[in-house]
């Protein structure tokens, strides 16, 4: 059974249908990439999975449980974290406060402490700046904070929306290295990216979205060699 399954999903903004009946699955331990141009519906899909948007039709299953009607704040507690597009760190709160808010649904103090140590180990820069107000961090540091904050909930699956957006090339490579690390530590990853080349290079499988439909799916390695993909997304 797939860990996360999206079945015949349709989502509308008023009269405009953004997602026109798509299905896909994410198995435990996989890194799945959703790629596609601006406006293809990638962010809409993630928002619908974590309950920020309600689907018009279709359903989302997490561990076999239908979550389409469960409130967003309860889905987090089930083990799903979502790193939103544009990072959305709490800019007026400190790095430490941001991280602790990531652990909001958790109760065990010693586990939270342990988690915090792990995150500081993975992102030493966050420890150096733990007292600093998040809004004063650089874009790359804010992305690390957003990732660290999501990891504080000890998720089994993590949804990432354009983690490389607006970052310098050095930070982009760093972020992708971190995503691989998160994956090898056992967390399942659903990655939405415009940087198709990077995304495909770390993903197991990928789905290519075009205006609300899945145009293509397959192993990431095969998609990297696909001529259409090369032309449309890889700029070759």
């Amino acid at each position: 059974m797939a860990m996360l399954e999206v079945r015949d999903l349709e989502v509308s903004y008023g009269v405009i249908q953004a997602i026109k009946g798509i299905s896909f699955a994410v198995n435990e331990g996989e890194v799945i990439a959703l790629i596609g141009a601006n406006g293809a519906g990638k962010t809409t899909i993630l928002h619908t999975i974590t309950g920020l948007l309600s689907p018009k039709a279709g359903s989302v299953f997490f561990d076999g449980v239908e979550i389409s009607k469960i409130k967003s704040h309860k889905i987090v507690a089930m083990g799903m974290a979502h790193v939103p597009e544009g990072r959305r760190v709490f800019a007026q709160l400190s790095v430490y406060q941001n991280l602790m808010l990531g652990a909001f649904t958790r109760k065990d103090k010693s586990e939270i402490e342990e988690n915090l140590r792990n995150i500081y180990r993975r992102f030493p820069r966050l420890e150096e700046r733990k007292g600093q107000i998040a809004g004063t961090l650089s874009g790359g540091e804010q992305q690390m904070l957003a990732l660290g904050r999501a990891l504080m909930s000890s998720p089994r699956i993590i949804l990432m929306d354009e983690p490389s957006m607006g970052l310098s090339p050095i930070f982009v490579s760093e972020i992708f290295a971190i995503i691989e690390e998160i994956s090898s530590a056992g967390t399942t990853v659903l990655l939405v990216e415009q940087n198709a080349k990077k995304a495909l290079s770390i993903a197991d499988r990928a789905y290519v979205l075009e205006t609300g439909n899945i145009a293509l799916e397959g192993k990431a390695i095969d998609l990297l060699d696909n001529d259409d993909i090369k032309k449309a997304y890889l700029g070759e």
């Binding site: 704040h73 987090v76 974290a81 939103p84 709160l93 808010l101 909001f104």
Partner: peptide, 23 residues
Amino acid sequence: KPGQAMLAVAEDKDAAQLMGINV
């Protein structure tokens, strides 16, 4: 915790929900 939730909701309701906060 409810106090911190207030600060989070004050700043960004969607992001707060994604932290598991009942807005």
